[in-house]
Amino acid sequence: MLVIEQKPLDEMINDAVRTFPDECCGFLFGKEDSDSRTVIKIQVVDNAKEGDKRRRFMISAKDYLKAEQFADENNLQLMGVYHSHPNHPAIPSEHDRVAAQPYFSYIILSVMNNEFDHIRSWQLNQQQQFEEEKVLIQQLN
C-alpha cells in the first residue's frame, strides 16, 4: 500500500494542472516499513524531454543524482516517480513499462481538460509487468 500525505498530494496535483497539456514529472520521498510506504515529500523536476511533452516525459541524469543526494542528506527514502497523463487515464503505457525501474512506485495523475481527475500508483512485479498499488490519502491534523 502507498500512503500519500495531503501536502505532497496537493503539490503533485498543482504541478500536473499547471503543466497541462504537457506531462509533469518529479520524485517521491518518504519512509517505508514492511507492508506500506508513505510519501511525505515530493520534488518537482523539469520535464527534460525534447520536443512534444504532451505524450512523453524524461528526467535528466543530473536531476536523478540530485534526488538521490537529497534523500541521503535528509534521511529519506527515494521511493519513486510521479508523472501526469494529460487527457488520458492514469494507466501506465508500454512506454512507461519498458523504462520502469524495480522497487520504485510510479504515481500517475490523470488531468482531463485542465482539471485533476484521478490518481493511481503502480509498481513492477518480478515479471517486469506493472501491478497497481492501493493508494491511501493521509490527512494530517
Binding site: C25, R55, I59
Partner: peptide, 11 residues
C-alpha cells in the same frame, strides 16, 4: 554513479 534513465509517457 549508476543512474537509471527515468522516462515514460502516455500512449
Amino acid at each position: 554513479s549508476i543512474v537509471p534513465a527515468i522516462a515514460g509517457g502516455n500512449l
